[in-house]
């Protein structure tokens, strides 16, 4: 083979590999959506059909009207949204304060604090649920969405601070100094100079916390005793174990749970990587 054909063959092989990766990544998600759009008969049929032949929205209609266990899926989506938004609002405030402290000031205990953040970020929720379930119930927050918000704030905060601090550090300190020389108060400097510049970072961090809280399973599963308080992941697993044969409905519900995450995800994926691998991938 001459070099030109060889290079061309290499190109084709690479693109073929790319197509395989695309198919392997997309197929399960495709199958989830396709199942949700197939008729009951088509799902149960032994005929192998890659594409839904007659589309139907019956499963989506069913989960929204009849719902899961007589509760519309709106309720579960709503619960998840409340928990996730609550976590974001409370969490971002605390994260911004802490991130400003570590990025803007040099003080005793700063390094220890950062190391503490890295460590607690890895504490397994699956282990902490045992003491936390007792604590939350004793505080009267068992079976309440507020209890879930509080816990989610705790578990998303370390990473949120870690991620946000690079954004705060990226704002040139001179800007703040200029503002303060011009006579702006500390609060004004923060509000009119630092805050607008950190806002994009705050959005990225918020989306991260939102996704984590939206997906959280263990705490919601353990603490929410009443079906009406289930968040989406808990409702989904309940649905799957209760009506395991209604795969159309289960897949429609998973689709509804996945869509918001995918949308948010596409917005922030670059930040997630640089936050987790920290210095390692910074060129």
């Amino acid at each position: 083979m001459n070099p030109a054909t060889r290079r061309k063959a290499g190109r084709v092989a690479l693109n073929a590999a790319g197509v395989i990766v695309i198919l392997a990544s997309v197929f399960p998600v495709y199958w989830m959506v396709a199942t949700a759009l197939k008729t009951k008969q088509a799902i149960a049929s032994t005929e192998f059909s890659l594409f839904p032949t007659d589309f139907t929205f019956e499963h989506f209609t069913k989960i929204f009207t009849q719902g899961v266990g007589n509760t519309s899926i709106w309720v579960y989506l709503g619960n998840s949204a409340i928990v996730a938004l609550g976590t974001v609002i409370v969490g971002s405030l605390f994260a911004l304060l802490s991130a400003t402290a570590v990025a803007r000031f040099r003080f005793r205990g700063r390094t220890s604090y950062l190391i503490l953040l890295l460590i607690v970020q890895m504490v397994p929720a699956e282990a902490m649920i045992i003491p936390l379930s007792l604590m939350v119930r004793r505080a009267g927050l068992g079976d309440q969405l507020l209890g879930l918000i509080v816990i989610n704030v705790g578990f998303t905060l370390p990473f949120a601070i870690w991620m946000l601090r690079t954004f705060v550090a990226a704002v040139p300190k001179e800007l703040e100094e200029a503002a303060s020389i011009d006579g702006a108060t500390r609060f004004r400097t923060f509000w009119s100079v630092l805050f607008p510049l950190v806002a994009p970072g705050l959005v990225a961090t918020s989306i991260f916390s939102f996704i984590t809280a939206w997906n959280e399973f263990v705490f919601a599963f353990t603490l929410m005793a009443n079906e009406k308080g289930y968040t989406m992941p808990v409702a989904l697993r309940w649905f799957a174990s209760r009506e395991g044969t209604d795969w159309g409905g289960v897949m429609a519900a998973s689709t509804m749970m996945t869509i918001p995450v995918i949308v948010f995800f596409l917005i922030v994926q670059r930040r997630m990587v640089s936050g987790l691998v920290a210095g390692a991938v910074k060129g």
Partner: peptide, 28 residues
């Protein structure tokens, strides 16, 4: 490729698990 892989990455764990249970369902 990145966008497709992102779909796999973004799917929530609970949905992933339910989905794979369906992919490996005994009957259908």
């Amino acid at each position: 490729v990145v966008v497709s892989a992102m779909l796999a990455w973004a799917t929530p764990q609970a949905a992933v698990a339910v989905l794979w249970r369906w992919l490996f369902d005994e009957q259908s």
